[in-house]
């Protein structure tokens, strides 16, 4: 394939791929220069070195963040050595894979885009759970308070009507015991659950953002 044919296919594929005109022209100028500097008589060879124009277009599109990001794995397989015939002919195998960091980026974007649904939902569920926990602990606490009240009134009644006083004191002690036995572990359990949930939330958010930012840093530093 000669330069004009190669360049027109490349241009067509880049435009079809939706690359911005600035990026398209930049890439086309670069490859045009390679053809011209390679020499008129070597155009076929230059085209061969560059490979299939459609593949090249796909690669350029991928590097500009277009669909189907692919990153070739460069290998030193094939050091060009003129003293050893055949070394430059063998084409190194290239492994193509969807970069995992892009998947993470996509996940982050998805999470952010759907935040208007899950943020209020999450807050609602959280406050609901919090309310229930407060309600249960308040009920248990009030049982304990009633127990204390009964104990006090029982102590007073004991002097006026001893059997009723004993009954009241007994019931009071029973309720205090019940309240303490159930209230304390429940509080511990609920607090522990909330703590766990928040640390999980913070950790997973951190992870998500770290991944995205470290990926950015890597691509910036090269």
């Amino acid at each position: 394939m000669r330069r004009l044919e190669y360049m027109s296919i490349l241009r067509q594929k880049l435009v079809e791929g939706g690359l911005s005109s600035e990026e398209t022209n930049d890439a086309l100028e670069f490859y045009e220069e390679l053809f011209l500097d390679g020499g008129y008589e070597n155009e076929e060879k230059t085209a061969q070195n560059l490979g299939d124009p459609e593949t090249l277009a796909k690669q350029i599109l991928a590097e500009n963040g277009a669909v189907g990001f692919v990153r070739p794995d460069y290998k030193m397989d094939d050091v060009i050595d003129p003293t050893r015939p055949g070394t430059s002919q063998a084409q190194p195998a290239r492994d193509y894979d969807i970069a995992p960091d892009n998947r993470k980026k996509a996940l982050l974007i998805l999470v952010i885009c759907t935040s208007f649904v899950w943020v209020p939902l999450g807050i609602g569920l959280l406050t609901g759970a919090f309310g229930i926990a407060i309600g249960i602990s308040a009920a248990l606490f009030s049982i304990g308070c009633v127990g204390i009240g009964l104990l006090v009134s029982g102590a007073i009644t004991l002097f006026q009507a001893p059997p009723v006083g004993i009954l009241l004191i007994g019931t009071g002690l029973f309720l205090i015991g019940l309240g303490v036995l159930v209230f304390m572990p429940f509080c511990k359990f609920a607090v522990g659950l909330f703590k766990k949930f928040f640390s999980w939330l913070v950790r997973s958010l951190k992870k998500l953002f770290n991944n995205a930012s470290s990926q950015k840093a890597v691509s910036d530093n090269g």
Binding site: L34, G51, I60, P72, V79, I80
Partner: peptide
């Protein structure tokens, strides 16, 4: 310029021109 860079690089390692364009960018 581009062509000379690719030629120099290819003396040492087998990289295609299409690999070097993104590097320069």
């Amino acid at each position: 310029y581009g062509y000379e860079i690719t030629q120099t690089m290819r003396k040492a390692v087998d990289v295609s021109e299409s690999t070097l364009y993104p590097v320069l960018k």
